[in-house]
Amino acid sequence: MKAYNLFIACAIGIFCVLVWGCERDDICAEDTLTTPRLVIDFYDIANPDELKAVRRLRVIGLDDESMPVDTLSLEGVADPTRILLPLRFQEADTLTITRYLLEEDSDLTADDDPETNSNSDLIEIRYTPEFIYVSRACGYKSIFQFGFNGSVLRITDEDNWIISTEQLKQTIDNEDEAHYIIYH
């Protein structure tokens, strides 16, 4: 009988540990890897191993009609060597396009000198979203495959500051490393 009482005490003890010891898994933790952004690094075209910052970069997201949606916050960095671009997606396994306007020397538009001006280049990102289950709290995330049809292309105009692009990764599934390089 004494052994039995001990058993009950143990069971109650285990229960208490279970109830109060469990972490909350109904809230998606901030450090969980969910839908990633596209990571682009800027390199020097004259010296392709060196990072080169883009002076006074402004990044503007565009909709399907190439109308500006919003200006992307670069988290206080005026001359970035790396940008992280959110991607649009509607349906899994469908080729999707996101367009961004990258404006170099954006401060020169506003000043009085007509000789100097900013230079805007349009880039077009093509990829295929794929939805992947993460957890009870976070639900699903999207990753993006470049595949055969995917790429980051600079649209040619009279005056391009972006010289070329280079693909580093086939899949956008994290934000740890650059997926693409832009040479300028």
Binding site: C28, T34, T35, R37, G61, D63, V69, D70, L72, P86, R88, F89, Q90, E91, A92, T98, F131, V134, C138, G139, Y140, K141, S142
Partner: peptide, 18 residues
């Protein structure tokens, strides 16, 4: 039903519910 978890969803303001 599920909604794709995207912390940057607000930028393009898309609806990701499937």
């Amino acid at each position: 039903e599920y909604t794709v978890y995207d912390t940057n969803q607000a930028f393009f303001n898309n609806n990701y519910t499937i």
